[in-house]
């Protein structure tokens, strides 16, 4: 049996982590942008059909998930969701479940028609308002903010000895950075040199009640992460080239990495953009039609 070499005693991180540089050209970027647009349409239709859900924070992170799942970043096998050496994806901001489920369906984890019982009782795939691991492709339950980075870090520690090139990607909301546990996890990952952990902040700057900065200002956000021992990148979270470039960057041999993606809540639908009002409200028939027109 292979002797486990977890990192409890601060062993140096494995040097075998491969860089993931895939050719990125204009047609690939255009392809991803189109997929993101289609995904946004599906998300809005899904939330409309369910009659409730969280459009704003789903649309802000759509480009990020599109790049991860369809840009050859995340290594996964939808036919074998529990494949041992897979990369892991965690949506810590679980209220963006419509985004996650539409992405998983699109990625082939389950047929699109199974989305029909999203937020409905007796849902076959347990498509709850917030994710749960009964759904294929979901690693952990979320919905209570602030826990995902710690869970992702635990997975990162657990898989590192056996699968040194596998990575854990955790998408965080900016609002949930107000939870103290995020910073506990940030300290932990730096201490254990968990370089296979990559956090992506969907920095849409709008929370349920208010602008995030008016609740509790997170800035200077890069300085915070840097001072916690993380390599920090900051990008435009709707610029597919920038997203891909950040995600393709070879792993830092010393530090976990955070990508602060500046995004717009409700991105793609003019009347939803930057609005607290569209945090947790489903569009009615008329608003759906209006939104879909903008996403043609």
């Amino acid at each position: 049996m292979v002797k486990s070499a977890l990192s409890g005693n601060l062993k140096p991180p494995p040097k075998t982590l491969l860089s993931r540089r895939f050719p990125l050209n204009n047609s690939k970027v255009t392809h991803l942008e189109n997929r993101a647009k289609q995904l946004r349409r599906k998300i809005l239709k899904l939330i409309h059909k369910a009659g409730s859900g969280h459009p704003g924070g789903s649309l802000s992170a759509t480009d990020i998930l599109t790049a991860l799942f369809f840009g050859d970043i995340l290594q996964y096998d939808p036919k074998d969701p529990k494949k041992p050496g897979r990369d892991r994806f965690l949506l810590s901001k679980g209220h963006a479940s419509a985004l996650l489920y539409c992405t998983l369906a699109e990625a082939g984890y389950f047929p699109e028609e199974d989305l029909a019982d999203y937020r409905k009782i007796n849902s076959k795939l347990f498509l709850s308002g917030h994710p749960h691991p009964k759904t294929p492709g979901v690693e952990i339950a979320s919905g209570s903010l602030g826990q995902g980075l710690s869970v992702g870090h635990g997975i990162a520690l657990g898989i590192r000895p056996e699968f040194p090139s596998a990575r854990v990607y955790v998408v965080l909301g900016d609002g949930e950075l107000q939870e103290g546990q995020i910073w506990e996890a940030a300290m932990s990952a730096a201490k254990f040199k968990s370089t296979n952990l990559i956090a992506i902040v969907d920095n849409n700057k709008v929370a349920q009640d208010n602008l995030t900065k008016d609740l509790k200002d997170l800035e200077p956000l890069e300085d915070k992460w840097k001072s916690f021992g993380w390599e920090t990148l900051r990008i435009d979270g709707h610029d597919m080239s920038q997203i891909m470039e950040a995600l393709q960057k070879p792993v830092n041999p010393e530090q976990p990495r955070v990508i602060i993606a500046d995004t717009i809540k409700g991105k793609g639908v003019s009347f939803m953009e930057g609005q607290t009002a569209w945090h947790g409200v489903a569009p009615n028939d008329e608003k759906l039609e209006e939104a879909l027109k903008e996403l043609e």
Binding site: P84, R88, P133, E139, I140, G146, Q147, S150, V151, G152, H153, G154, I155, A156, L157, G158, I159, G180, Q181, E184, A185, S188
Partner: peptide, 14 residues
């Protein structure tokens, strides 16, 4: 809190 969630992650890693 971080410890308990890290434990959950370790469990999900087998």
């Amino acid at each position: 809190g971080d410890m308990v969630c890290t434990a959950a992650g370790l469990a999900q890693a087998g």
